[in-house]
Design a protein around this nucleic acid. Structure first.
Lengths: 142, 142
DNA sequence: CTCGTTGCAAACACTTTGCACTAAT
DNA sequence: ATTAGTGCAAAGTGTTTGCAACGAG
C-alpha cells in the first residue's frame, strides 16, 4: 500500500519525524491550514521545527500528490490532504474554509469541457458565504 | 449613467488621470492583468506612475464594485473589469487566464446552496488546462 | 484654498534560498 | 559513511503604509 512512509522512500525522500508530523496534521484536520497554522499546531510538540521546513515539506507532499494547495483569496496558501478535486466554501466573516461534501460537479464540468477550446486538466471551485456560527453571531447582535 | 467618473465623484473620490488610465486598461483587455502588468502597460504613457498607485486604485475600484480580484493560484492577484461572476480558465503551460463565456452555472450553484448550511454570497470557478496555442506548440515538438 | 492623491521609500507578510550542522539510510 | 534534511538567517516577492509634494475640486 501507499503509506506516506512508503511513498517518500520510493521517491528517494527520507522519512523524517517532521515530515510525518506535518502530513499527520493535514490528514487529521478539516480546517485547511496554512503553513503558519501547521507550524503553530506543531510548535508544542516540535518546538525546534522551523517554518521553512513546513514549506519545504508541503511542497514535497504536493509533488507526491499527497496534498493539494488552495487559495481562497487570502495572502497565503492553504493545504488539504484530500487530493480529490472537491469544492470548498469560505466564510467571509471568520475566514474558515470547509469542504463541500456530496456535490456532483460532473455535469457542470462537462458543460465547460464542451464550451472551451482548452484541453481541461482540472478545476477548483470556491464558494463564499456566512457559516452557521457567524449567522448565529449576527442574529444575536440584532 | 454610472461612468467611472461619476461613480468616483459620487463616492467622494477624486477623478485623476491615473485612476481613469488604470480602469481603462482593465476595461480594454481580456488578459486579467496583475497590478504589475497594469503598471507595465501604463509605463510608456505614465512614466512617473508608481506601482503603489496601481494597488491603491484597484482597491478603490473593487470597493466601488467596478473590478473583481482573481487568484488562479499564483503569488499575485489579477483584476477583471467584468464584475459579474463567471468562470475563468487558466493555461498551466503559459499562465494565460481567459474568461469562460456562455457557461450556465445556475444549476450547479443551486445544488451547492441546497447542500451547505452556509448562507451563500458568491463563488469563483477556476478551470485549468492547456490553451489552444500551447496545444499546437506541444504537437510541433513531437 | 483645501483636502484627497501621487510617488517614493520604507515597512510588511508570505515564501524561498544558502549553508553549516544533523540525522536517516 | 553517505547523502539528504533541518533550522536558522538572509534574501526574494507581492502588497501596504507613511509622508511630503502635488493637483483636483
Amino acid at each position: 500500500m501507499d503509506s506516506i512512509t512508503t511513498l517518500l522512500r520510493n521517491k528517494g525522500f527520507k522519512v523524517t519525524p517532521q515530515r510525518l508530523a506535518i502530513y499527520n496534521v493535514l490528514v487529521n484536520t478539516k480546517t485547511h491550514p496554512s503553513a503558519e497554522m501547521i507550524f503553530n499546531e506543531l510548535q508544542p510538540v516540535y518546538p525546534t521545527m522551523s517554518l521553512a521546513t513546513v514549506y519545504k515539506t508541503v511542497e514535497i507532499l504536493r509533488e507526491l500528490g499527497m496534498v493539494q494547495m488552495l487559495n481562497v483569496g487570502e495572502d497565503s496558501f492553504r493545504y488539504d490532504a484530500i487530493v480529490e478535486t472537491h469544492p470548498h466554501i469560505c466564510c467571509t466573516a471568520c475566514g474558515r474554509v470547509d469542504d463541500l461534501e456530496g456535490i456532483d460537479s460532473a455535469e457542470f464540468v462537462k458543460s465547460v469541457e464542451a464550451a472551451t477550446p482548452y484541453e481541461l486538466t482540472g478545476q477548483q471551485f470556491y464558494f463564499y458565504g456566512i457559516c452557521p456560527e457567524c449567522q448565529k453571531k449576527k442574529m444575536q447582535q440584532h
